[in-house]
Design a protein around this nucleic acid. Structure first.
Length: 853
RNA sequence: GCGGACGUGAUGGAAUUGGUAGACAUACCGGACUUAAAAUCCGGAGGGCUACGCCCGUGCGGGUUCGACUCCCGCCGUCCGCACCA
């Protein structure tokens, strides 16, 4: 039995595609379509998540190509990042060497997948020819006020004298030194994302081809809330205490004030109050971990200060420093209204503060209504509140804000949860920030004609401190402004900056003087279809949206949204295995024993099989795509990725699944070997088609229509099912039918074209076997002829009282009376009716006839 | 706590707007081919019963409807995201 020689075939077609530059963008008038998958970090090893991601993108790219679009489907490398630096420390390889080595290795693995990528546009973000433009953008942002410097705290490793990224902090300790990490204030660079907070929020609505989930996540991340800033005078002090509140309508229910432990007022008071100092130190200790916050008790420290409620001049409110108030939201200070905020209520009960309700729930009695253990947060009628009494909550908010504005004690204010993006990283392997710090001139931008500021190559990693800072010469430069002694900024940019504009660079990847050609960008961007993991739902996607707006503000672009269509794929999962000692085992280290239980191959002991989880190094449930592709071929791996699971859901990797895909590929191979048209056979259409042949031709057109539709909707699993259904029918088609040479052949041609986006190598091979000497990759998608989509017979389900009792095959478009008569002829239907008179007959043409008795 | 998604055979999953539940696969069972196995091919299959038919069945309990996996109300469970956001 002949088997599909995938090794030869896949290598052959990959070579031919490359030789013919089949996937390079050409300059022509066809409509453009930009398909982009999130570019990879060059770890050196392709994993299953990549295979799924790039297969999904490849289906779209090849499909759109066949549909007549000028498709751009580029690939590059998100090449700066911490792992290269860590590898340098642990293995002693220079980050540049390991990164470029990894890129080479991964490119080979990519090649084996047979993706329709335009490699002529490839670049790596760690290349100075890329990051020089990023440095220029930084300077533009600086000039436009979109980049600025301020003090901010970082994770500081006191042993290694280095700043740590959040992921380098494990259980509050530095990943290498194991020392307890401290918070330290450093001057750092920020991008003013908040400048566009409103815009970024409002424009989400227009992103119709984004998953709702992602839009909701961004919406919550931006976190707009309407309220007011209110200033409370402090007894015996000139400066008032300003708070932010979304419930100014409850000001008459105020019971206390609270400020953050790191509020400037708290810091000031602490200088001569050791007890307060201790309290603040205690607050800083409570971790920021999820549980820590959940468990943490609400604690307050009475500063002794008293505030005056602007609406109740003789009321005195104690000012607490409280552990639950955040400095970086609002003003870092609140007023507590325990009647209508649960957290304030807990605090008030604990510290014996009065609880005055000011919102009366509907139907509650103002004389008896009291707050118990639960604050009342719903709508109602304001009471106990002088001039607000009788208003509902929204009206009271408006009224009180107006009142506060008139008396100068506050104003309506919108606050966002979104914060500016801190882009400084105290790392070596990143884009240098093009700034020079001069003792006399201050912060001086590197003149654009001196860009790029490149990284020094001779560095020592793994020593104490930032290698750029420690380098003997790199940072010492002359001030561009005064010529005096000055120092470079030794921080580098967050790698999220690199990925915030790479999709623009792909449009004109080799320009040296400019980051991109504006007309090229405006031709291709927004990306028509962006595909990647949902883990980037907020940061990467939000930053990219910010970047487009910032570049527009700087006059470089006229685009706001980078990605018109977004698809977030599910993860690739696998069962986990654990031996009796609790050690994780790789799937290759276990096998089923004679009793069907999984056993460790090494010692034959039983292993515990855990549920399917995302493949991860720590749980060892990782399948390397390399050997799989070696054993089954890229098409089998691709087909499995696309088969059963809908792309947005998690996919469980199974041996049976890849095996099934491989078997199907061989089945297709045999189908074409058996049904292929021998040379010299007459291909003219017979005068009349047998009903079988007619039915097959209909199925061909129906399948073309349905598969196209499912691909458009990203239902690739269903497209595969339809293709299988179609090929199953082809296998059983009678080869002796007089119309077989024509009808079967057209069916086979359609089948090859439909499967091409999924299993491109096999499809090319079969296309060639059908006698074509053109590339299938350059062949148009088949068209379904509407005339052949029409059925002339339909199956109508006959129900009696909503229960199925019979099905009828009737001519399409049959009338109600005819259908009813036919149904009443049916014995089974008659039995169900049981001689009762019909009360009602519901008829849905060509679908349902429901007899109600 | 807040927000979102999901819950269908042994398993992955189908079921355009409410209209024949279980497409297409995987695993399984039976048969053919084979010395044998693998591969391949053919057939079976939601559960039950008094089986050419009937009853039950889409997490649970109600409701709307001629008709509900689909819509509404109330629960339960799983997963994901955010999390002291005033």
């Amino acid at each position: 039995m002949s088997r599909y020689p995938f090794k030869e075939a896949e290598a052959k077609w990959q070579r031919i595609w490359a030789d013919q530059k089949a996937f390079e963008v050409t300059a022509d008038e066809r409509p453009t379509y930009y398909v982009l998958e999130m570019f990879p970090y060059p770890s050196g090893l392709l994993h299953m998540g990549h295979v799924r991601n790039y297969t999904l993108g490849d289906v779209v790219a090849r499909y759109k190509m066949a549909r007549g679009f000028n498709v751009m489907h580029p690939m590059g490398w998100d090449a700066f990042g911490l792992p290269a630096e860590n590898a340098a420390i642990t293995k002693g390889i220079h980050p540049a060497a390991s990164t470029y080595g990894n890129i080479e290795a991964m490119k080979k693995q990519f090649a084996a997948l047979g993706l329709s990528l335009d490699w002529s546009r490839e670049f790596a973000t760690c290349d100075p020819s890329y990051y020089r433009h990023q440095q220029a953008m930084f300077l533009d942002f600086l000039e436009a006020g979109l980049a600025y410097r301020k003090e901010s705290s970082v994770n500081w490793d006191p042993v290694d004298h280095t700043v740590l990224a959040n992921e380098q902090v494990v259980d509050g300790r530095g990943w290498r030194s194991g020392a307890v990490v401290e918070r330290r204030k450093l001057a750092q660079w920020f991008f003013r994302v908040t400048e566009f907070a409103d815009e970024l929020l409002e424009a989400l609505e227009g992103l119709e081809r984004w998953p709702d989930k992602v839009r909701v996540m961004q919406e919550r991340w931006i976190g707009r809330s309407e309220g007011a800033r209110v200033r409370f005078a402090i007894e015996g002090r000139d400066e008032p205490l300003e708070v932010f509140t979304t419930r100014p309508d409850t000001l008459f229910g105020a019971s206390f004030m609270a400020i953050a432990p790191d509020h400037p007022l708290a810091t000031e008071l602490a200088t001569d109050q050791p007890a307060l100092q201790d309290f603040i130190a205690e607050c800083a200790k409570t971790g920021t971990s999820e549980e820590a916050i959940e468990q943490a008790e609400k604690l307050g420290f009475d500063t002794g200060l008293r505030c005056i409620n602007p609406l109740i001049p003789d009321q005195r409110l104690p000012v607490y420093v409280a552990n639950f108030v955040l400095m970086d939201y609002g003003t870092g200070a609140i007023f507590g209204c325990p009647g209508h905020d649960q957290r304030d209520l807990d605090f008030a009960r604990k510290y014996g503060r009065p609880v005055t309700p000011v919102v009366l729930p509907p139907d509650a009695d103002p004389e008896t209504f009291a707050i118990g253990d639960e604050a009342y947060v719903g709508d109602g009628t304001i009471f106990n509140s002088e001039f607000l009494d009788g208003l509902d909550v929204p009206a009271a908010k408006r009224t009180v804000i107006q009142h506060l504005e008139e008396m100068g004690a506050g104003e309506g204010r919108i606050t966002f949860r979104l914060r500016d993006w801190g882009v400084s990283r105290q790392r070596y392997w990143g884009c240098p920030i093009p700034i020079i710090k001069c003792e006399r001139c201050g912060i001086v931008p590197v003149p654009k004609d001196q860009l790029p500021v490149t990284l020094p190559e001779d560095i020592e990693l793994g020593k104490v401190g930032n290698p750029l800072d420690r380098h003997p010469t790199w940072k010492h430069v002359a001030c561009p402004s005064c010529g005096g002694k000055a120092e470079r900024e030794t921080d580098t940019l967050d790698t999220f900056v690199d990925s915030s504009w790479y999709f623009l660079r792909f449009c004109s990847p080799h320009l040296s003087e400019r980051p991109f050609d504006r007309s090229a960008v405006e031709r291709w961007v927004p990306v028509d279809q962006y595909i990647g993991g949902v883990e980037h739902a907020v940061l990467h996607l939000l930053y990219s949206r910010f970047f487009c707006r910032a570049l527009k503000r700087c006059g470089q672009l006229d685009i706001e949204e980078p990605f018109a269509g977004l698809f977030t794929q599910g993860m690739v999962c696998h069962k986990t295995f654990r031996d009796a000692d609790g050690r994780w085992l790789n799937p290759a280290e276990v096998e089923p024993g004679p009793d069907g239980e999984m056993r460790a191959i090494a010692d034959g002991r039983r292993v515990e099989v855990g549920r399917s989880e995302k493949m991860s190094k720590s749980k060892l449930n990782v399948i390397d795509p390399g050997p799989t592709i070696d054993a089954y071929g890229a098409d089998a791996a691709r087909l499995f990725m696309l088969s059963d699971s809908p792309p947005e859901r998690d996919l469980e990797w199974t041996e049976a699944g890849i095996d099934g895909a491989w078997r199907y590929i061989n089945r297709l191979w045999r189908l074409f070997a058996e049904a292929g048209t021998p040379a010299g056979v007459d291909l003219t259409e017979p005068d009349e088609l047998s009903s079988e042949a007619t039915e097959l031709r209909r199925l061909t057109h129906k399948t073309i229509h349905a598969v196209s539709d499912e691909i458009e909707r990203f239902h690739f699993n269903k497209a595969v099912a339809l293709i299988r259904e179609f090929s199953n029918r082809l296998e059983s088609f009678d080869h002796d039918d007089p119309a077989a040479p024509v009808v079967l052949r057209e069916a086979l041609e359609a089948l090859v074209k439909l499967m091409a986006p999924m299993v491109p190598h096999l499809a090319e091979e079969l296309w060639q076997r059908l006698g074509h000497d053109t590339l299938l990759a350059k062949t148009a998608w088949p068209e379904a002829d509407p005339a052949w989509l029409q059925e002339d017979e339909v199956t109508i389900a006959v129900q009696v009282m909503g229960k199925l009792r019979a099905t009828l095959n009737l001519p399409k478009g049959v009338g109600k009376e005819t259908a009813e008569a036919a149904a009443l002829d049916d014995e089974n239907v008659q039995r169900a009716i049981g001689g009762k008179p019909l009360r009602r007959v519901i008829f849905v043409p060509d679908k349902i006839l429901n007899l109600v008795v």
